[in-house]
């Protein structure tokens, strides 16, 4: 098949300069594929330009820091990767803040790989998961702002949330919201761990602007790496379950 195409391309390339323009666009070659063979050739001058950078990087990036029991995949409204990451952020935030918070949120778009494969986890995977230099930030939200935040996440199809937050999404709106099993208390202030990106209004979160906040000054990525290394030291592997934290209304 490849040869037929190549032959056809060659024939057409020869004919091309000699064809009548008015008729040209309905010619037979709109979907010509460059063969795999050609596309998989490498360019030596590019490889030699990359080589010294790659060597410096690989030494650090290829280090295995932990292990995933199952593939942690990113999905909406809830996923293993999202649950794993948000729970990790919740734990790390409480550790560094030195007091409990209500829950932690990762923005869906901030997770930059589709999954962490099962098996060894390298430092590289965590860099690709969270390439941004986002810092952990705790925002203190009144009930109204908290609801606005949850509505924003529901509209986005559900963002990764730590286990304390649960809700259903119907027609893009959150329903049956609970935090640690309780409905939102209109008199309370809620401590929520997010990234400074969101706290600064990124991801469409302009409602955080007036909120009191604690900037922990710790990179989300570094906290993630440290957490995995510590787990590994304790003989623990990375895992997460799907537990219906966030569900679409029609899901069983």
């Amino acid at each position: 098949m490849k040869q037929i195409w190549t032959g056809l391309i060659a024939a057409l390339l020869l004919i091309l300069p000699a064809c009548k323009v008015n008729h040209l666009a309905d010619a037979a070659f709109t979907n010509v594929a460059i063969s795999d063979e050609q596309a998989s050739k490498r360019q030596a001058s590019i490889d030699s330009l990359v080589a010294p950078y790659k060597a410096r990087l690989d030494a650090e990036m290829d280090e295995v820091i932990g292990e995933a029991v199952v593939e942690l995949r990113k999905m909406r409204p809830e996923s293993r990767l999202g649950n794993w990451f948000a729970d990790l952020l919740h734990e790390e935030t409480e550790k560094h803040l030195g007091k409990p918070i209500d829950f932690a949120i990762m923005n869906y778009g901030g997770i930059r790989i589709p999954s962490i494969p099962s098996g060894p986890i390298t430092r590289r995977i965590i860099y690709e998961l969270m390439p941004f230099d986002n810092l952990i930030t705790v925002v203190y939200l009144d009930a109204g702002t908290l609801l606005e935040f949850i509505k924003h996440m529901a509209k986005g199809g559900g963002w990764p949330a730590s286990a304390q937050l649960r809700y259903n999404i119907k027609d893009g709106e959150p329903q049956q919201i609970t935090i640690d099993g309780n409905p939102i208390d209109p008199t309370r202030t809620y401590a929520v761990s997010i990234s400074d990106y969101l706290a600064n209004g990124g991801g469409g979160c302009d409602f955080f602007a007036e909120m009191r906040r604690d900037d922990l000054g710790i990179l989300v990525r570094q906290a993630t790496i440290d957490h995995i290394i510590e787990d590994t030291r304790l003989g623990q592997k990375q895992n997460a379950e799907l537990e219906g934290r966030i569900r679409y209304h029609d899901d069983p």
Binding site: I34, Q38, A39, K41, R42, Q43, S45, I46, D47, V50
Partner: peptide, 11 residues
């Protein structure tokens, strides 16, 4: 990959 993109462009 940059190397193969470069090769394709060269082709």
């Amino acid at each position: 990959g940059a190397s193969r993109r470069a090769a394709l462009i060269e082709t």
